[in-house]
């Protein structure tokens, strides 16, 4: 039975691909092996409608349009080869090998399965060489946030999602899912508020799909890129000169450049650029006696206040 269904579906794909014209119900019932089993018109239509949905579920675009016999109404079906086939590309052995390595990246089974299917398709346009030489690379990606799967599927289907964030119900059209510093973010248009960035782990309930797939279109990539920048560190606005104890406070030293300023014995002066006083003051306080602010005085006061809060009374 399953084999019969598979044969009919595959024959349908081949017929709809091979035709330059839209095929009517009658032509499909006549020509495609497998539909003859339908005893009545109704039974055939039900069978065909189900098959059509199955094909769309596989990502195959079944187009509707006027057949040769039509007087204008869309009464026929076809699949356009340009929509159907993998583009005529060829992957070099080195490229195919890297695709093979990508297949082991996801720890999420659904996404890993998707990469596997993509890799199998790409095997027809390029053969990998041995991945032996790349075995020392083991990148892994995860998406443990419970809200992630729904956001992912809805975003790719261009379907809005509803969820609660900061105590408020939202309806959001997803633009981009961004992984940064190990955390996932959803950039999108909150229909009630405007374009917003949502940290996926802070979504307070399980997101639900809202409305139909394909309900919106994405803005230009440049526009999305511009909005995605809000996750990047703000550009530095000022510099603080810090005396760093040798071989300590590497996080600050990596951020800065040597500053030609006199320091106490055993220290070196480093100019550290920063965007937010509070952020840089915390980073300096973290190093304790290994990082001392030389100038300016206002940053030093912030660090001193911070240290006094930790030191407690009596110091």
């Amino acid at each position: 039975m399953a084999a019969r269904n598979s044969e009919r579906l595959l024959n349908l794909v081949i017929a709809l691909l091979a035709t330059p014209r839209y095929l009517t119900y009658d032509q499909i019932r006549d020509r495609v092996e497998g539909y003859q089993a339908a005893k009545t018109d109704d039974a055939f239509r039900r069978m065909f409608e189900r098959d059509k949905e199955d094909l769309r579920g596989m990502g195959i675009a079944v187009l509707v349009g006027p057949s040769a016999e039509s007087s204008g109404e869309a009464d026929g079906y076809r699949i356009r080869p340009d929509d159907f086939y993998l583009p005529a590309i060829h992957l070099t052995p080195a490229e195919s090998t890297l695709v093979g390595l990508a297949a082991s990246v996801w720890s999420e089974p659904a996404l890993a399965g998707d990469v596997d299917r993509a890799m199998t398709k790409l095997r027809t346009v390029g053969e990998p060489v041995s991945t032996e030489g790349l075995r020392f690379l083991t990148p892994r990606l995860a998406a443990r946030e419970p809200a992630f799967p729904v956001l992912w599927e809805a975003l790719l289907a261009r379907q809005a999602v509803e969820f609660t964030y900061h105590g408020r119900p939202r309806v959001v059209e997803g633009w981009r899912l961004i992984l940064r510093s190990g955390a996932w973010y959803l950039l999108g248009r909150d229909r009630g508020v405007g374009v917003r960035m949502f940290r996926v782990s802070r979504i307070e309930d399980r997101p639900r799909r809202a409305g139909e797939p394909g309900a919106y279109t994405l803005p230009a990539t440049d526009t999305i890129d511009e909005r995605a920048k809000s996750l990047e560190p703000a550009p530095p606005v000022a510099t603080v000169v810090v005396a760093l104890r040798e071989s300590a406070a590497g996080d600050l030293r990596r951020r800065g450049t040597p500053a030609g300023v006199a320091t106490p014995e055993g220290y070196e002066a480093v100019a550290v650029p920063y965007a937010l006083v509070d952020e840089v003051a915390r980073a300096i306080a973290a190093a304790g006696p290994d990082a001392l602010v030389l100038e300016p005085g206002d940053v030093r006061d912030r660090v001193l206040a911070h240290l006094r809060a930790v030191a407690g009374g009596g110091s």
């Binding site: 091979a18 990502g59 929509d83 993998l86 583009p87 890297l98 990508a102 398709k121 790719l156």
Partner: peptide, 26 residues
């Protein structure tokens, strides 16, 4: 038949592969 090339990547396949390739790239 004309089935001489595979079906193109679905959006989910392409997106998952894209991120995986970026992870390797890093």
């Amino acid at each position: 038949t004309t089935l001489d090339r595979p079906l193109r990547l679905t959006v989910a396949e392409a997106a998952s592969l894209h991120l995986a390739l970026l992870a390797v790239r890093s």
